[in-house]
């Protein structure tokens, strides 16, 4: 079984190009659920979500009120997409 690579907040911040304090804000807003919440360590999935949130904020001007709605819809979309792919394979 592959254990996802976990990175410290600072490493993820560097890798995603997103300031640490913003990632902390994302975690506190519960937009990110780090793979290791206690030690604030992120895996690839968390990092990809951090980048997405950052782009939605910085590039698309999505505010904090709209963010959870968009993330929820994207999670739904991804879930259905995955389900459909599984069902037709």
């Amino acid at each position: 079984m592959n254990i996802p690579l976990r990175k410290k907040l600072e490493e993820s911040s560097e890798s995603c190009g997103v300031p640490c304090e913003m990632i902390i804000h994302f975690i506190e807003a519960e937009w990110i659920s780090p793979i290791d919440r206690e030690h604030r360590m992120l895996d690839d999935e968390d990092e990809a979500r951090v980048k997405l949130i950052w782009e939605l904020r910085e590039d698309f001007g999505v505010n904090d009120e709209a963010m959870p709605i968009i993330l929820h819809l994207l999670d739904q979309l991804n879930f259905f997409h995955w389900k459909i792919k599984q069902s037709i394979l």
Partner: peptide
């Protein structure tokens, strides 16, 4: 790096 969509597939 993978997009968020890729990470969820």
């Amino acid at each position: 790096q993978n997009s968020f969509y890729d990470s969820q597939q």
